[in-house]
Design a protein around this nucleic acid. Structure first.
Lengths: 162, 162
DNA sequence: CTCCCTGCAAATCCTTTGCACGACA
DNA sequence: TGTCGTGCAAAGGATTTGCAGGGAG
């Protein structure tokens, strides 16, 4: 994954800090506990897999499950779904439906960001843009609409695939 | 549905023209024929239901199916799915996954627009904004990413629900 | 010790497909 | 007449749930 910063370096810094925090196993466990969830092996491992940002940080439930199997962890697929759902409610992970087919999950570092998804290689490029965010707020306010969350996904062809 | 125009009156006019065109039954049939599809009753009726913009113009396959039943049309659910899929390929309708649960369909008037979806009443407010569209093009270009399509959905609470 | 969490299996939901019949060109 | 479109039933895949046993606090 490539993370792109387009507007402010401050946003970039905040994001990196969030990532670093999220990668620390102890803190991850504390996050689980802080949400009133017991710190169990499946929960720790699921969060660990999603925090391992070397490769795709956007994993489907089944992909998470497969990574766990590869790690030698004995976790069932329903548990992965349950844990992910709980983490989403707890604000620890974010769920996206890029294609409407299967959902993908990523660590929720608290910062809203958007995605470009390559239709060829499925690579995901994240980006933030405060101009767009501000504009959306204004457009919503104009409608008397209060934004709780928004999804912005670009589909197209990435640089490598051209 | 309320349609909101935020930037240019030209966009608004174009859209209204598209809507009016889409509501004319004969032209709808011609659209079907123009795509190399036979003009059959299920196809005409599905397009008619989606073109009736009095109420929600964003219908799931099952909702389309129910409207057809209410109209006394004998159409099967698989056929509705098939027709909608064909129409999507033909560019007559657009498919969206607002919540990732069930897909919804709307007439594709050729103009890209975005959606605000109320989490309370499910009302959908459409809006267009060329500033955002331009900004996205620039952001994508900066990445060497060619946008083929994009989805922007705001979730939140609409004015009525407050 | 008690309640929460998990695994297993089965169920559910939306959506798609196989097949044979009927309709339009 | 041949191909395309449809209905029906069944399959398919992702996700959820019921239940009983096991583990965390």
């Amino acid at each position: 994954m490539r993370t792109v910063v387009c507007v402010s370096m401050l946003e970039h810094l905040n994001k990196e800090i969030g990532k670093r925090k999220a990668m620390d196993a102890e803190i991850l466990d504390q996050d689980i506990k802080a949400k009133g969830l017991k710190v169990t092996i499946p929960r720790m491992k699921v969060l660990a897999v999603l925090s391992a940002e070397k490769d795709a940080p956007h994993l489907s439930a089944e992909e998470v499950y497969n990574r766990l199997l590869a790690m030698g962890e004995e976790v069932s697929l329903p548990t992965v779904y349950r844990v992910l759902a709980q983490f989403e409610s707890a604000g620890l992970v974010k769920r996206h439906c890029f294609d409407g087919d299967r959902a993908v999950y990523e660590i929720d570092d608290g910062e809203a960001h958007n995605h470009m998804v390559c239709v060829c290689c499925s690579e995901v490029i994240e980006f933030v843009d405060s101009v767009i965010a501000d504009k959306l707020q204004r457009l919503a306010a104009y409608q008397g609409f209060t934004i709780s969350d928004y999804n912005l996904v670009l589909h197209g062809v990435c640089a490598q695939c051209k």
